[in-house]
């Protein structure tokens, strides 16, 4: 089970510098931290939104969730880490990797 703060872990995942969809990250975190249910799903997604608004992730692509893989009829977002995110992320995470 995950033992680091959620945003540390999210940044850590994005530090691979690849693009990830929010639903991939949310379900990965839900599994790692054993956080089931819609409430935790939305709460983890809000963490991603906060990281993006703090300039650490960048929202690069959106698509409509037609099949309901995350939330049917809502937008899905794809993010990539920014330079600032890399700095903050490696301050916080890299010592442990």
């Amino acid at each position: 089970m995950g033992n680091r703060p959620l945003k540390f872990r999210i940044l850590e995942i994005y530090l691979d510098e690849k693009e990830h969809w929010n639903y991939e990250i949310v379900s990965k975190i839900q599994e790692e931290y054993d956080m089931k249910g819609d409430y935790h799903r939305d709460s983890i997604n809000f963490d991603i939104i906060e990281l993006a608004s703090g300039g650490m992730l960048k929202d690069i692509e959106q698509k409509v969730d037609e099949e309901g893989i995350y939330k049917k009829g809502f937008l899905l977002h794809k993010y990539v880490i920014t330079d600032f995110g890399k700095v903050r992320g490696s301050d916080a995470c890299l010592r442990y990797v």
């Binding site: 993006a52 608004s53 703090g54 300039g55 960048k58 929202d59 920014t82 330079d83 600032f84």
Partner: peptide
């Protein structure tokens, strides 16, 4: 209110 119109990212970039 200087960053009007720019709602998604507030810093960097």
């Amino acid at each position: 209110t200087e960053e009007a119109g720019e709602l998604e990212t507030l810093r960097g970039e």
